[in-house]
Design a protein around this nucleic acid. Structure first.
Length: 955
RNA sequence: GGGCGCGUAGCUCAGCGGGAGAGCACCUCGUUGACAUCGAGGGGGUCACAGGUUCGAUCCCUGUCGCGCCCA
């Protein structure tokens, strides 16, 4: 017996266990061995993560696709797993050490620290996986992977080594985005430009051959800068070659204030005559643009900061080279001062000596680390890079050719934009948690890259023995004993960017490179579902790696969904405190309601502003369905084994079959087109506004009535349509649908593995043609016959009859409400001048119409009685003789309004039809439609005028 | 500065070259045989603005205004 109230929490845990025990989500189930695979890789959440709205949306959409295709018979592999999230995880564990007042990472040492991270991962790393399960994600959990698994690590090493061998990975000394808090390089993508209110300092740089006089502009050049503290590292002043103010100075030198270094004035396009003074100081070691200018002019690069962003001047040979006596004093004074404190000190000192001309307020973009939040320092270091430009080419071509398509398509533009301007990808990180770079160095700094230490060491020792750096005996000894080679051969300390391993996810999770069986079956995957915020971070890189190593795209379709924002449209973030926790919504309304909400709001190309009220509404929808099933159960509705919905004879039953077919087609086609909101709207409308509001109501008299063929058929049909609903709803609301599936009948299997309803109305013509051309009896059956074979519920006659009932009841209800007739008052109904068809319908639906419209009896007459309210239902008059009950003048007003409307319609249509150009240019069916509209409006008008006449007579 | 997107009912949003829609909110009525987490009925929009294309524009194009995001 179905309880009166639906309790999601209880159902959800039970259904999850049921699926788990049945192995329902497992790929490669024996009975599907020959089925077409359907493969999706999950965007691996950070192992430190906990479920947020973005995950909830992302995984709901993937789950809808997976459950849908599973029901359509595909062998579904939804590959789950988590990402080791280098920086984030390392930070979490370091914080934990601090909280517990344990020794820090550096005191602990690398090996011990990593042990702690793994320990942390074992204890707390699985949180998000359980949260995904609560959401109902039907991943094959038995195949869960982690980016630092042995297998995936082997894939990383292999990829690194091969790309290095091909010259696509290389080491280079250039400016990187340096995070002075986390003490690591980060990639361009991990840098966020934040608008900051700062200043523009105008500094006077004295000309070499003049005596500096702050009051005489001829003795100096003014440069404008946002970063005065880096002036210590200046190696030139640049002016635009076309800037006439400075033409004479090009080639001259200035003397760097405070420092005394002589630096040239160079001509470079980079200097913008419109900005500041038109002259700009060049600090190649601390600014990306200046770095390029420096390269063009062969300028020295003088780094004046250390890793932590403090001035490093003492013993800084680059800085001290060629400086006059006394310069070291300044170096000592400023050494070790933090960059922001240094800024103040240096500005003050410049001012003291008259080098500061003025300060302007200036709002500009300043790079910040997305993890640490501190200002990023361009810093000159050795790092590993991927030649992204080269690797991007096949990845660009794949999208150009359509081998991979973005949905919605406009994201392709974003993809191209970035890929075509891609910069070298800095992949080394000065962290401990991650894939340590498989590179070893000899005593002379020569690098040996190999997948394993044995191989690298072997190569290295061979190399040095051959060059007689060591003897063969020493080599053998070092090969045998790692302790012996310590200090001779050392491994690169750095680890790889987390996204390096994520880029391999679509094939590394399938067993590459160790076992390619699953790669053969599941690569390329079918679709990638992700948010636009990681198109660059992840999608683009998977494309590059996939094209390079698999020689094929990782997925033919990339569905890009929106961002979930708060009610006001702001991005949810912890720091803003506007985060809605999906788990709370699940607690309050159930996972099904949350999933349905997200699906219903996932319109393409628009962000989701989530209000919990919506979730409540869809919880109510679940309750509605629950009660409909309860009603069916109370009436003993059941589906006989041999029941064929297409063979139903009762008009009402044929009608619900027709409507079910329509809903099936709508839902199926919408999911196929990734139009999740349309799919959700269709099933919602069908369940509530068709099945509950009309079908069940219209069926009640039959169900409560006498036994007989009609009742037998209806009992079956209520159950049949309910089952179809449960199937259609399952991808969206898996828990309640599975529960009701189990409760409403003795079933052969779980709903999750039940066959999806076939599209009524036949296949689309494309499908029919495809089937006709690919089926074995090619040419024997015309496509039309194949289409009929799929079962067509389309029934216009049933639609017309039930439509009439619906319209009649609605019209009567409306007028009763307007006339303030209490439900207790039963009014008679007179059908005036009814056709044979209408008479038949009225007789067949007598009970229902009387009950639903609160009528007394229904009779027929040639003309409506005097003083009756007259309604137009599908072109005929239905009269409610309410003389004495109704207000005649109110009724006249009502009819006048309707008359005006009919006349307006006629006028509008006439305007169109009277327009020769319209008739000449508009498609025939549109013109035809307009003509029909006119006829209908004219008929309506006639009836209303008649009604008004009769009203007058009554008065 | 470049790119993308958005301004439709009080709110949140669908839609889209041929008669303006949903959910919520609101108002009226309702304990009729599943459901008050419900039922019935109703009010409410010059589809941001201005041009253009078209027989016809909320929809396509251009511009303006307002808002958001991404990149430099």
């Amino acid at each position: 017996m179905i309880e009166k109230n639906y309790q999601p929490a209880d159902i959800e845990t039970r259904m999850a266990r049921l699926w788990e025990e049945a192995g329902a989500f497992k790929a490669g189930r024996p009975e599907r061995r020959d089925a077409r695979p359907f493969t999706v890789v999950i965007p691996p959440p950070n192992v430190t993560g906990s479920l947020h709205m973005g995950h909830a949306l992302n995984n709901t959409l993937q789950d809808i696709l997976c459950r849908f295709e599973r029901m359509r018979g595909r062998d579904v592999l939804w590959q789950p797993g988590t990402d080791h999230a280098g920086i984030a995880t390392q930070m979490v564990v370091e914080r934990q050490l601090m909280e517990r007042q344990e020794p820090g990472r550096r005191d602990m040492g690398r090996a011990k620290f990593l042990e702690r991270v793994w320990q942390w991962k074992a204890e707390s790393g699985g949180v998000i996986v359980n949260q995904l399960k609560r959401l109902g994600a039907s991943c094959d959990w038995s195949r869960e992977r982690f980016t630092m698994d042995e297998g995936l690590s082997r894939a990383v090493a292999k990829v690194f080594v091969e790309l290095h061998r091909e010259g696509l990975i290389y080491k280079d000394k250039r400016l990187v985005n340096w995070d002075p808090k986390l003490l690591t390089a980060i990639s361009d993508l991990e840098v966020q430009q934040i608008e900051v209110k700062g200043s523009l300092w105008y500094l006077r740089y004295p000309l070499q051959d003049k005596t500096f006089n702050p009051k005489d502009p001829a003795t100096f050049v003014v440069v404008a800068t946002t970063r005065p503290e880096t002036m210590l590292g200046d190696t030139a002043v640049a002016v635009n070659p076309d800037d006439e103010r400075y033409t004479d100075l090009i080639g001259n030198h200035v003397v760097l204030p405070l420092v005394g270094r002589k630096i040239p004035i160079v001509a470079d396009e980079y200097s913008d005559p419109e900005k500041g003074s038109g002259a700009v100081k060049i600090t190649p070691a601390h600014d990306f643009n200046d770095f390029e200018v420096g390269r063009r002019h062969g300028l020295p690069q003088i780094s004046v900061l250390d890793q932590e962003g403090c001035l490093a001047l003492v013993d800084n040979e680059d800085y001290l080279r060629g400086l006059p006596e006394g310069a070291s004093q300044l170096a000592e004074e400023l050494h070790g001062v933090d960059r922001f404190a240094a800024r103040k000190l240096i500005v003050a000192r410049l001012e003291d000596f008259g080098f500061l001309e003025r300060i302007e307020p200036n709002t500009h973009m300043v790079p910040h680390g997305d993890r640490s939040g501190v200002v990023i320092e361009p810093y000159l270091t050795d790092q590993w890079y991927v030649d992204a430009h080269t690797m991007a080419q096949p990845a660009i071509a794949a999208v150009r050719s359509g081998a991979t398509a973005f949905v919605p398509k406009n994201w392709e533009k974003t993809y191209f934009e970035w890929m075509e301007n891609i910069q070298p990808w800095c992949i080394s990180r000065q962290l401990w948690w991650g894939h340590q770079i498989p590179a070893w160095y000899g005593p002379d700094g020569k690098v040996f890259v190999a997948e394993t230490e044995e191989e690298a060491v072997g190569n290295a020792l061979g190399y040095y023995v051959e060059r007689e750096v060591i003897t063969p005996e020493q080599g053998d000894e070092m090969a045998r004993d790692p302790d012996k080679r310590e200090g001779f051969i050392t491994r690169d300390e750095d680890v790889l960017d987390t996204w390096f391993s994520s880029a391999l996810w679509p094939f590394s999770t399938l067993g590459w490179p160790d076992d390619e069986t699953d790669v053969q079956r599941h690569y390329p995957t079918d679709v990638l579902v992700t948010g636009f915020d990681i198109i660059f971070f992840w999608v683009a890189r998977m494309m590059m790696m996939g094209m390079h190593f698999m020689k094929d795209v990782p997925f033919p379709t990339v569905y890009i969904h929106a961002l979930v924002r708060d009610e006001k449209g702001a991005k949810m973030s912890k720091s803003k405190g506007n985060v809605i926790d999906p788990l709370h919504l699940i607690d309050d309304y159930g996972a099904d309601a949350l999933r349905f909400t997200l699906a219903a709001m996932a319109a393409q190309g628009r962000d989701i502003k989530l209000a919990s009220q919506r979730v409540e509404g869809y919880r109510n929808f679940a309750t509605k369905l629950w009660n409909a099933c309860r009603f069916a159960e109370m009436n003993g509705c059941a589906l006989p084994a041999d029941f064929e919905a297409t063979q139903a004879t009762q008009t009402l039953n044929r009608w619900i079959a027709h409507e079910t077919g329509r809903a099936t087609r709508e839902v199926t086609e919408a999911i196929e087109a990734y139009r999740f909101n349309d799919a959700a709207a269709s099933i919602y409308r069908f369940v509530w506004n068709v099945y509950c509001d009309w079908y069940l109501e219209l069926a009640k008299p039959v169900l409560m009535g006498e036994e007989g063929a009609a009742k037998t058929e209806t009992l079956a049909m209520v159950a049949w349509a309910r089952d179809e609903i449960l199937k259609l709803l399952h991808p969206f609301m898996p828990f309640i649908s599975e529960e009701l599936w189990a409760m409403t009948a003795k079933r052969d299997g779980l709903l999750v593995l039940t066959e999806w309803p076939r599209k009524a109305g036949g296949m689309t013509s494309d499908e029919a043609v495809m089937m006709a051309t690919t089926s074995p009896n090619d040419g024997l059956l015309p496509p039309v016959l194949l289409a009929l074979d799929t079962g067509d519920f389309s029934d216009p006659a049933a639609e017309a009859e039930i439509g009439w009932v619906v319209d009649l009841v609605t019209a009567i209800r409306s007028v009763r409400a307007e006339m303030n007739i209490t439900p207790a008052t039963l009014t008679p109904l007179v059908l005036a001048g009814a056709s044979e068809e209408t008479r038949g319908r009225a007789q067949r639906w007598n009970d229902v119409v009387r009950r639903m419209a609160r009528l007394g009896d229904i009779s027929f007459a040639d003309r409506p009685p005097e003083g009756a309210v007259q309604l137009l239902v599908r072109g005929e008059v239905a009269a409610l003789p309410l003389k004495g009950v109704i207000d005649l003048s109110a009724e006249k007003t009502r009819l006048d309004k309707e008359l005006a409307k009919a006349e307006a319609d006629i006028k509008r249509v006439d305007a169109k039809l009277g327009n020769e150009k319209f008739v000449a240019n508009a498609p025939e069916e549109i013109v035809e439609e307009e003509k029909e509209k006119r006829e209908a409006a004219v008929a309506r008008k006639t009836k209303i005028i008649e009604a008004l006449e009769r009203l007058k007579n009554a008065a």
